[in-house]
Simulated scan of single mutants.
Amino acid sequence: MNDNIPLNNHYKQIEKAIQYIDTNFKEHPSIEEVAHNVGMSKYHFIRVFKEYVGVTPMQFLHSVTLNYAKEHIKESKSILDSSLDIGLSSSSRLHELFVNLIGVTPKEWKEKGKDVQITYGFGQTPFGKALIGFTLKGICYLGFYDHNKEEVFQRFNELWENANLIFDEKLANEYLENIFIKNKKYPLLVKGTNLQINVWKALINIPDGQIITYSDVANRLNKPKSVRAVANAIGKNHIGYLIPCHRVIAKSGAMSGYRWGIERKKLLIEYEKNRKE
């Protein structure tokens, strides 16, 4: 195997690897098998593949499998049929794949949240009015608003369009008080792509009172060339404050791109900064 080919000459090998994975993903080829097929050693292949594609070969294989499962499951009569068709040992393995990557089960994906019970309500926070939604698994929505109450509800409703929504303003305000006044921690139930979820995890790890740039987030994810994709993922965050997208600013220092208002973003940053001091 010739591992001394310059990086910019590896394109054809990576293209061949992607084609091999697309064709053989149901057989779950090992990384060694894919690397051998393109004439590279395992660890060199992993490094070069990630440099070109932005994810590891195993992450790419999971993504291809998941995308196929999402389409196949729409037509399948049972989850087990889908599991067997893509070569997984049981429906529990398919369930694990969905949970790890996108935070919802195959059944919830297929039925777009049908029978998922979400309690929601409107209330006051130190940073203005907010809509909060939560399930037994965790908080699934937190959005601020000023006068656009219908707009924030529409966003929430579109995200969980077939869920069973239960309005309980008293309980919603208890949650908001616990979060903003008592600083109580809750699990978060997110719905998004693998990239979005990884970006949101990175945001949670930004220390309280600290601000970083979109480039910083991309670098933390080892995706320095994917700043725009990372920014788009940050913009899709549907759990404000708890997933602190307000702590990310442009490289120029501009406070841009906050769906709940630039002034609120400035206020959140100053509040956390002063609290830390």
Rank of each mutant, 00 (worst) to 15 (best):
G209F: 06
A233S: 13
G209K: 00
N173Y: 03
N198M: 12
G240L: 14
N232R: 09
I181G: 07
H238P: 03
Q196E: 13
Y186A: 08
R228H: 09
L195M: 12
V190R: 15
I166R: 02
Q196T: 01
I234P: 00
F180I: 08
R259E: 04
S215R: 01
L176H: 10
N194W: 14
K185R: 14
E177M: 11
Y241F: 12
I179H: 08
Y175F: 14
Y241N: 02
I206K: 12
V190M: 15
P244L: 00
G253W: 05
W200Q: 13
T213A: 06
Q196N: 03
D208R: 02
I211K: 04
V248E: 00
L221Q: 06
V248Y: 05
T193Q: 15
K182Q: 01
I181C: 04
N194D: 13
L176G: 06
F180P: 00
L171T: 07
A229C: 09
A172L: 03
H238Y: 08
D168A: 00
I166M: 01
S252W: 07
Y186V: 07
K223A: 09
I206R: 11
N183C: 01
D168M: 01
P187R: 15
P244V: 01
R259P: 00
Y258A: 03
S226C: 07
G253P: 00
K201D: 08
E174R: 14
E174L: 09
P187V: 14
P207N: 11
I249D: 06
A233I: 11
L176D: 07
K182S: 06
A231T: 11
E177H: 13
S256Q: 12
V217E: 10
I243Q: 00
V227R: 02
P244Y: 09
A231L: 04
T213E: 03
L203D: 09
R259K: 10
L221S: 02
K201C: 08
A172I: 01
N205D: 14
H246M: 03
Q210K: 08
I239L: 10
L203M: 08
F180C: 04
R228T: 04
D208V: 04
I239K: 13
L176T: 08
S252P: 01
V199Q: 05
F180V: 06
N232W: 08
P224R: 15
A254P: 05
I206Y: 15
I234W: 10
L165G: 01
D168T: 02
N219T: 01
I234K: 05
Y175K: 10
Y175D: 10
K225S: 07
V230A: 05
I212L: 10
L171F: 03
L165I: 03
Y258I: 02
L195I: 12
A254E: 15
N219Y: 04
K201A: 11
K201Q: 11
L203I: 13
N237I: 14
L188Y: 13
A202N: 13
D208Y: 09
K201T: 05
G192K: 12
N198D: 10
V217N: 03
I197Y: 12
K251H: 01
A233L: 05
G235M: 07
I197M: 13
V230K: 06
Y241D: 02
V190C: 15
Y241K: 11
A233G: 08
E174S: 13
I204V: 15
L242Y: 12
M255A: 11
I181R: 11
Y241M: 03
Y258G: 04
S215E: 07
E169Q: 00
N164Y: 02
L171D: 06
G240H: 14
S226G: 04
